[in-house]
Design a protein around this nucleic acid. Structure first.
Lengths: 260, 260
DNA sequence: CTTGACCTTGACGCAGCGTCAACCTTTAAC
DNA sequence: GTTAAAGGTTGACGCTGCGTCAAGGTCAAG
């Protein structure tokens, strides 16, 4: 008969010593993170001092937020603890920043709701007036452009117009999402959005993007600049920062995929 | 035969319009968040403009970080959008702060590892020297106290000493965990820790907590004050802030349970 | 012998879909 | 008319880290 303070302890005892639960210990056994030092003839798990030290390291790392697989690697290599922690802290910072952006976004939404500019309103698309850009379109791309564009627009009919507006709304939403998620302008997500944006542009006749043979690259790049320069457009993308993000993504996309 | 721009669209189409996937739409159907407006004789799902509006609200709220059940409630009540968002932003802030504390904690650990004071070291308990507090114990609680305490300590034997050190280490770890998790001193978690701390104190003979009839309440409260005043103890609890947390928790516990 | 405390394995649950799998329908093409 | 490509359907597993029963063995005490 062993004394209780002998070579090892039963599972509940060691759990108490380390400040965790027996269920957790069984889980660590299942996933191969910490095996009992001994298993009784009855299947009972027993842990000795070595297991306890390892367990305490595991719990320390877990409290720092590392995942169990990551902990397993750290304990296996034993060398790059600091490296693993540095990588981990970088990830933590990203998460914190993402949360900060999301908080800002929610706060903007609350404000917007309070001011009655309810983004949840059923008629959120009905504020979209195609003709409000008449003068500007004519000035930028000529009178023909507006006439053609307007004819196209009327030709779509109510359902078609709704669909077009929805696609543009989805695009704006996704740009915002990517921006707030901290994507980089030359990253995969942003570039996919740029592709969608260009594809979407081609549905509008009279624009260079829809007219083969024109300098699409310059057009798309210039469009991005306009998003930044024109506050009305920029507002759709979450302010100057968001517009700049869109501009950069479009510039990268144009450079890589549109010609030259 | 309906025209494509008619009353409703098939699942993939509406997913594209809203910028999500058909799988997501089926999931929303499964959990009762968004049902198709019509189901074909073949089982196909079709969505109309109403579904689309609802879907866009769902996606908007989801991007703000709300869970699907919460979104369901908001859309059902329709009124307290702002209230739900305010509650949500409070939760987001908590998370952000928790991450900030965890970042600080990981950074401290990195520093500690770099300086060689490796908290992962196998012999992390061996730096614990019971006799280092000799003079102090004598000064505070008299010579007898130290003698008794020392005899008790030697009497534990190596295994018993190890266990005792481990329990104290676990306590310190759990206090830190609770502090960094943003627990309040009078909260459930902190009070449970206080209970453990007092229970643990009673294992040390010669202290009032282990001696019935003494003023345990004053002792425990005073102990907390000492944690704050004495930097050596405070260091174990993550600096002054952590020590103050422990002190407050102990004070609340003593007030509530160690009655007068 | 019984009670009660502690042990075992097994399996569901959670959040939100991604990702096969196995099997129809519709549509466009030949 | 047939066929192959799309796109639809209902399951069901996977991911993270255990909490939480459930059903049933083991062990020390009365």
């Amino acid at each position: 008969m062993e004394t209780k303070t002998g070579a090892d302890w039963p599972i509940h005892e060691i759990a108490r010593l380390a400040g965790t639960t027996s269920r957790t210990l069984r889980h660590y056994d299942d996933v191969g993170l910490l095996a009992p030092s001994r298993i009784g003839h009855n299947g009972y798990r027993y842990y000795d001092r070595g297991s306890l030290v390892r367990l305490q390291r595991i719990l320390l790392l877990r409290d720092l937020g590392l995942g169990l697989p990551a902990i397993g690697e750290v304990l296996a290599n034993e060398r790059d603890v600091a490296a693993a922690l540095r990588a981990h802290v970088a990830w933590l910072r990203q998460e914190r920043d993402r949360l900060a952006r999301q908080i800002a976004s929610v706060e903007r939404t609350i404000e917007s709701v309070n001011e009655g500019g309810d983004p949840m309103a059923e008629n959120m698309f009905d504020g979209f007036d195609h003709t409000q850009y008449k003068d500007e379109v004519e000035e930028r791309w000529g009178k023909d452009a507006y006439t053609r564009s307007d004819a196209w627009w009327r030709g779509l009919g109510p359902a078609g117009q709704a669909e077009w507006k929805e696609r543009s709304a989805a695009l704006i939403r996704d740009w915002n999402k990517a921006f707030e998620a901290g994507e980089t302008a030359d990253g995969e997500a942003a570039q996919e959005l740029a592709r969608r944006q260009v594809e979407w542009l081609t549905t509008v006749p009279g624009t260079p993007a829809a007219t083969p043979g024109q300098d699409v690259k310059a057009y798309v790049t210039g469009l991005g600049e306009m998003y930044v320069a024109d506050a009305r457009f920029g507002a759709n993308y979450g302010g100057p920062g968001g517009a700049a993000f869109v501009r950069d993504a479009l510039a990268v996309y144009a450079q890589r995929n549109l010609g030259g």
